[in-house]
Write a protein that binds this DNA or RNA. Structure first.
Length: 307
RNA sequence: GGGUCGGUGGCAGAGUGGUCAAUUGCAUCAGACUGUAAAUCUGACGCCGCAAGGCUUCGGGGGUUCGACUCCCUCCCGGCCCA
């Protein structure tokens, strides 16, 4: 039996990915690679819904004492630094090889569709690192100006890009400045066999779960966590760029003219919105098998691994 | 009881004679996504219609006007002030 099978557990926020992944890991001798663009950061725990409890932490590999399951991709970067898909992709490649070599099953669990895609489709991004100087120079240009620039540099990319999205435009220009034009995306994968499972939830149920989550976070020390991060030198600006709780709590702390109830409502609404964006992304991938409960998930994984 | 300000679409809140189905924000719905992806961005959002277009709206009723969310009268409701 060739050892190249990888399980992916994905879904919107609060759908219950983590617990399903842990159960699978126990059952099938797996190790978990988190694909979550915010759980990579140290100190961002409550707001990102990280697994609680004590863990041993050796070389980025966290083994939680309560479950004995190894996790990767958690607390691997400082929130003061810039992380991105490309870094994650390289990291994940290494982790996957390592897990497989030890005869275990990699279980990728997370809600960052863009990151998951980089692994599943083995996407190779152009080797152009972010150029902060260029970015700051482009910052005060209008989207029209940016689009005009890109059109000159790479008419082809200009055709398909979202002409109103400054983030996309800046990155495309950045690539052009470095290597001439934006290359076609390479995405080939023959190495691994993926089974992507989505945790299916009715909208009402998911909303309810999100609400419970948000309330629970405020029941524990969510606000303190934000204050602690800031006290440790994380700028408000950077923190707010992480979105959701990390965006609204700083705003709330800075101008105290709204109540905590309003803050919670705001975060709840924003999380629902986020869940929707995640689903918009996931819905496009027909390879994802959507299942509502763990029993069914376990069954399909068993079949997949047994093949 | 007297005075005064106000009642606008799910909410907040503009508009103050025609260009208004009505700025904007929030919420809601749908979507995009080549190194920020919990980010960034787009569209829809009174009703009918694929559309052109049609229909009914700005507390209720009446009036002025070619024409009113905008002016007048009156009633109902709310805030504030004086009794």
């Amino acid at each position: 039996m060739k050892n190249n099978k990888i399980i992916v557990i994905l879904g919107p926020t609060a759908s219950g990915k983590s617990s399903a992944a842990i159960q699978l890991a126990k059952k099938f001798n797996g190790e978990i690679l988190s694909a979550d663009s915010r759980q990579i950061y140290r100190g961002m725990d409550i707001g990102t819904g990280k697994i609680e409890g004590k863990s041993s932490n050796i070389k980025g590999k966290k083994i939680f004492l309560s479950t004995g399951i190894a996790h990767y991709g958690i607390d691997i970067a400082s929130p003061k630094t810039d992380y991105n898909v490309a870094k994650f992709k390289k990291y994940a490649d290494r982790v996957i090889v390592d897990i497989l070599q030890r005869g275990k099953v990699p279980i990728i669990a997370g809600g960052t569709g863009f990151w998951i895609k980089s692994i599943v489709d083995n996407v190779t991004y152009p080797e152009v690192a972010p150029n902060q100087l260029l970015r700051s120079m482009l910052r005060n240009k209008t989207t029209e100006e940016l689009f005009a620039m890109l059109k000159k540099l790479d008419p082809n990319r200009a055709k398909s890009i979202d002409a109103k999205n400054p983030v996309r435009l800046v990155r495309a220009i950045e690539i052009c400045k470095a290597i001439g034009k934006v290359p076609m995306l390479k995405s080939e994968n023959k190495k691994y066999d993926f089974l992507q499972i989505g945790i299916a939830r009715e909208k009402e149920e998911l909303d309810e779960r999100i609400k419970i989550n948000v309330k629970k976070r405020f029941g524990s020390s969510m606000i303190e966590e934000v204050q602690k991060l800031h006290a440790a030198g994380l700028s408000w600006k950077k923190m707010e760029s992480f979105g959701l709780s990390y965006k609204f709590i700083p705003q709330y702390l800075k101008n105290k003219n709204s109540s905590e109830e309003e803050l919670i409502e705001k975060i709840y609404a924003a999380e629902k919105d986020y869940a929707k964006r995640q689903m918009t992304w996931f819905k496009k991938d027909p390879r994802i098998v959507w299942l509502p409960d763990y029993q069914k998930i376990e069954k399909i994984v068993e079949e997949f691994l047994g093949k």
